[in-house]
Amino acid sequence: MANLLDIRRRIKSVKNTQQITKAMKMVSAAKLKRAQDRVVAARPFANKMTEVLTELAAREREDFHHPLLDSRGDERYLVILVTADKGLCGAFNTNIIKAAQVFLRQHEGKQLEMLVAGRKGRDFFRRRNMTISGEYIGLTGSGRVEYEEAVNVAHAVIKRFSEDKELDKVFIIYNEFKSVIQQRVVVEQLLPVARVEENADSAAPGREGAQGVQPLTLVDYIYEQSPEDIFSRLLPRFVETQIYRALLESIASEQGARMTAMDAASKNAGELINTLTLNMNRIRQARITTEIIEIVSGSAAAAR
């Protein structure tokens, strides 16, 4: 019967944990709201960008060359992996790391290296002796990312890609925000920027995560600068917005995943408290019953 005290202690500790998970859920919910707003706010720019780029690409087609556009060999890949800095967000990190591993396995023959944003991804692949050519920690951790930070990443990638002619392709793997309870791992080819075909449905293989772009209608634009000039200015900016979007999506997904995970944890803690309380009461009652029996049988013996 001595474990009555133990159970009480246990209940108290579970209650503490529940308070923490509840608080984390609230914080995530607030951060999620903000992250979601930012994803939505970033959409018009990205969409318009894609529109104009498509427009230009349709015009220029094959006769135009740019280092970020021309396809190279198929030997060396750089993979940008966007994970979270922190855990406690359900299967969020596991899923994305698993997807990355699948990707790596599919391209086993190639020379692969990684650029990781997020502590979780870095730790995982560092332990597995992956070549990590760059890391960005603290980028996704605070729950918000500035456009300039995405630009920094983009510039590093673009610089790397234009200097290292041996590098053939750059991919980005991130969690796309579907809904609060749903994330989708997306693998996109970032560089070279996929040439957009004239018939929009066969456009850009491997970019299934892209938002729907309005059907293309060719308008005769006046170009204040030469289309080549505008195009080559636009391409890096396009890469920037792509990375920015990936980071935003990932952050929103992370907060959503954490919110659901913490909600589940709070619920589980509640259930645990209920069972423990039931147990405790049962024991307490049993103890009282025994005491009464003892007293009754004692007085009965004395009365005899």
Partner: peptide
């Protein structure tokens, strides 16, 4: 500077 009034021709500029 580019002045744009309603009915302007399609244009792209930096």
């Amino acid at each position: 500077e580019l002045g744009i009034l309603p009915g302007h021709t399609p244009l792209i500029s930096q």
